[in-house]
Amino acid sequence: MNALDTFRDAVGESGAVCVRGGGTRWAVGGLPRPGTREVVAPSGVKRHDPAEMIVSVGAGTPLGDLREVLRPTGQETTLDGPDGCTVGGVLAVGHSSLRRARVGALTDALLEANCVGANGRTFTAGGPTVKNVTGYDLCRLLVGSLGTLALMGEVLLRTRPAPEHAMWLEGEVEPDEVAAACYRPSCVLWDGTTTSVCLEGYQVDVVEEVSILRRLGFREVGGSPVLPPFRARWAGNVPEGAVLEIGTGVLHQPLPADLPLVDPAVARLAGRVKVSFDPTGRLNPGRDPYREAA
């Protein structure tokens, strides 16, 4: 029996069930209802094909393990998350990387997912190629769904060339000046006073852009600033202690944010999607993708 079949049998056909990944963001969207059975998705990197820029991996694989496999080949994925997180956990939570401007949105990373549905049977979403519009785009629907529609067992991810060189800088400069001075920086953060910039690419280009930013008043630093733990959606100001991702509108702040107001018509549509995939509500009960601020 292969790993996916084992996972399918563990999920079974009835009873409330949730998947435990690294547990690093276990409370996002709400804790599983008490009494929910925990299962674990398959782990391990099955196949990396650099010439296709794809990697096939068990959803339970620690993201760090995947990075170790990819690093010697000079490739990376779009996935990012806290230390100890798993591939499936990152996809379920659905937060794009801070480096989204370079690596793309997380929702574009998942090419194919072998899932177990609420009926306990396996199905495949998406397809094995890097370009594919065959049928409905279930992969994007699954990313960020917190395992409430189906449980991902094995996934095929897009990879891409990793940058040759990376550099973080910061300076007491308005973030708009960076947009005017640089070509598609990987990340720009703003805490209301200081702008932090990540430049990535070929060394020759990064060095050139570093010198441009130095003239604007930036200095080189060791890495990303430490981000406060809670996410919110930018509402036009950057509160004390918060850090704004320029270009995504995600605000990292010290205190939990209010939940977003969801248009009732969108909520009804989302509810129909949930019922359509999981009529009895057995997949990750207690969790709600709309119960997170950003």
Partner: peptide, 29 residues
């Protein structure tokens, strides 16, 4: 405009979708 005549906005001008990526599901429909 959904098939029951309801109007919804799916996705966000910036950043990841709040909740389900219904925008991603709609594109290519």
């Amino acid at each position: 405009v959904l098939s029951d005549g309801t109007v919804v906005v799916l996705g966000e001008e910036q950043g990841d979708s709040v909740g389900l990526d219904l925008r991603g599901a709609f594109v290519g429909g």
